[in-house]
Design a protein around this nucleic acid. Structure first.
Length: 583
RNA sequence: GACCCCGUAGUUCAAUGGAUAGAACAAUAGCCUUCUAAGCUGUGGAUCUAGGUUCGAUUCCUAGCGGGGUCACCA
């Protein structure tokens, strides 16, 4: 709720000591604009909720003279509903958006606090699939959400460039592809080789010895493997940088497993000395966490080779040395939830006092089941992007070719034909919007079923639907300029239900951002964007902006439309979705 | 076997313990000589089962059924 409106309502209800957060929006517009539930008061007073509501409504109506925002209060069962003055709400909201612009909706909860967000912590020598893409989307959104709440945010990445998967890939490369020339997309090639090697090893476990030998060579920086490792690692990193740039990821630092793993081995020795770790079955080094119900964590294999934990312990140290933050967040798939409980418990035992947060997201499944590189059933981000782009390109081209708007028998003006560069630029933005929206429209913690048809969809609950609204508003602005209609100063003529609804919804920005952050869930933003866009399309179809009854009303509606555009762009920016001028 | 997550229209997803369980897609019937029809308006269609907690349960508890994940040499 807009601060001004909130203050006024809380003033009216001062006697009942309520906060705006207790209020809700009634299910139907004809039931009012805001609802105050009377259950709490009913409990403390012993009266029935319905009676309490009636009493309060009557009392409030006698005091309303002083209020410009609330028109009347009415009891609906156990609720007291408020009917608000459209013009007053619209005026307050639009002015507020005009003044604060891209800061509209910001909060201050994080002022003076520093937070580091690590994502997507992907692996070199492996594919970058749509699961990683989901990770990036969630991380991107959290970075922006924290920033908008006033936090100082440090997005970082941790590249796993040194684990067993690297040994597997290099082994497969030497064994099966030693004489081949690397193709253009080298990172993709490595990913395929990794998958191939994994499958081979599953069927031929004996070959594991050879892989283990490569692991040892790697940890010893043996010249027999090191140059190949460094070269292939670079292939992966180059590609990841390209993808991150495309997806608007801006890491302020990147940590590499290869640089810290040796240090991790020292930490393991130290933990052994301090008695936190001990020697387990077969000579492996473990931490027994069973008293915390976290079972046993493995720090070092019996053959001396390190594991994830071996690197994650020094990683924490390195991270905090570089950035002295209050909270450290890591985003991974939910299958690592248990692992992170172990990791954070060990760090705590080592004396770490910072707030350590693990945020997990659900799997991205395919309609036919789980993604599995073994069955070749994996969708790579780049392949998906190319597929979506093709569709957006065709669609855009068709809409802006000669004759598109000419209806048989009618002499309707056709829009100018677009140049290919403009089609490509627009289709690129539409592609990103479609993909990023599709990934963020579901609650982040839940598994989702990825449907290519839905990802390429341009209608309904989709990215292009939102960009379409912005394009329409841009078009209004351009036409208004030609017709010499200026953005209205007097907004008191915005009295319709649809205009009020838009204003009320825009006023929710701040609440929505806070909620999305509290739940670590960008889908709250995505849904809000969609609902605001729907409300605008409803308004647009019922009321003409430029051909309004009076020039004043046209100007006022233009101002309202521009405010909607601003709010939509503010929220889409959190999802790192750029808008298009036209489409 | 133990622990964690999930079960809502044909499908994919919403719903701080609150009002008549919302959308989108699909199905179906309409709306372009008026600001971009990538739009708008209708119609039909759902809370896994059985108990419990209470003024009120999709939401909390118990049991069962079904799906996914994790549980020391994997990442």
């Amino acid at each position: 709720m807009l601060r001004e409106v909130q203050a006024e309502i809380e003033g009216l209800l001062a006697a009942y000591n309520v906060k705006a957060s207790e209020m809700s929006i009634p299910p139907k517009p004809e039931m009012g604009d805001l609802a105050f539930p009377c259950f709490t008061i009913s409990k403390s007073s012993g009266k029935k909720p319905n009676e309490v509501a009636t009493d309060i409504a009557g009392e409030l109506n006698r005091k309303l003279g002083a209020s410009s925002v609330v028109l009347k209060a009415q009891a609906f069962g156990p609720y007291v509903n408020f009917f608000l003055n459209s013009a007053a709400i619209a005026e307050l909201t639009v002015r507020s958006v005009q003044k604060e612009r891209n800061l509209f909706g910001d909060g201050e909860a994080g002022k003076g606090k520093k937070v580091m967000i690590e994502y997507p912590s992907n692996n070199t020598h492996k594919e970058f699939h749509i699961g990683h893409f989901r990770n990036v989307c969630i991380g991107n959104a959290l970075v922006r959400l924290y920033a908008r709440e006033g936090y100082e945010v440090y997005p970082v990445n941790y590249l796993n460039d040194f684990g067993a998967h690297v040994a597997k890939c290099l082994w497969g490369l030497k064994k099966f592809h030693a004489d081949e020339k690397a193709p253009e997309n080298k990172q993709k090639w490595l990913g395929e080789i990794y998958a191939e090697a994994s499958m081979y090893l599953k069927n031929n476990p004996d070959a594991g010895e050879e892989v283990a030998a490569i692991s040892k060579q790697l940890e010893a920086k043996d010249k027999k493997i090191w140059p190949l490792f460094m070269k292939t690692r670079e292939w992966s990193i180059e590609k990841f940088d390209e993808i991150f740039a495309e997806l608007n990821v801006n890491h302020v630092a990147v940590f590499y497993e290869k640089d810290i793993k040796a240090k991790g081995q020292k930490i393991v020795d130290e933990l052994l000395r301090r008695g936190i770790a001990k020697v387990g079955e077969g000579g492996a080094i473990i931490v027994d966490l069973s008293e915390y119900k976290f079972d046993i964590a493995l720090l070092r294999k019996s053959n001396g080779v390190g594991l994830y934990l071996t690197a994650d312990l020094p990683l924490a140290e390195e991270k905090f040395k570089k950035f002295n933050v209050d909270e450290s967040i890591v985003i991974t798939g939910q299958e690592q939830t248990f692992y992170f409980k172990q990791l954070y418990k060990i760090l705590e035992l080592m004396g770490e006092k910072r707030k350590l947060t693990h945020i997990s997201y659900g799997l991205v499944n395919l309609p036919e089941g789980k993604m599995s590189s073994r069955s070749g059933n994996v969708i790579l981000y780049e392949d998906l992007r190319d597929q979506v782009f093709e569709k957006m390109y065709e669609e855009t081209k068709a809409r802006h070719s000669a004759g598109r708007f000419v209806i048989p028998g009618q002499d309707r003006e056709s829009t100018p034909v677009w140049l290919d560069k403009k089609i490509v630029d627009t289709a690129r933005k539409l592609t990103q919007a479609a993909l990023k929206f599709d990934m963020q429209k579901h609650e982040s913690g839940k598994n989702i079923v990825f449907d290519i048809r839905e990802a390429t969809s341009v209608e309904g609950f989709s990215g292009p639907y939102l960009l379409y609204v912005v394009a329409r508003i841009n078009s209004l602005t351009a036409k208004a300029k030609k017709e010499k209609i200026t953005v209205g100063k007097n907004l008191s003529c915005l009295t319709s239900e649809e205009e009020k609804r838009l204003a009320l919804m825009m006023g929710e920005s701040e609440t929505v951002i806070a909620k999305a952050l509290a739940q670590y869930n960008p889908s709250v933003i995505a849904r809000y964007c969609f609902e605001l866009a729907q409300a605008f399309n409803d308004f647009y179809s019922k009321h003409s902006v430029l051909n309004a009854e009076t020039k004043e009303l046209a100007g006022a509606r233009l101002a309202l439309s521009l405010a909607v555009k601003q709010v939509l762009e503010n929220m889409l920016a959190i999802l790192t979705i750029e808008t298009v001028e036209e489409m």
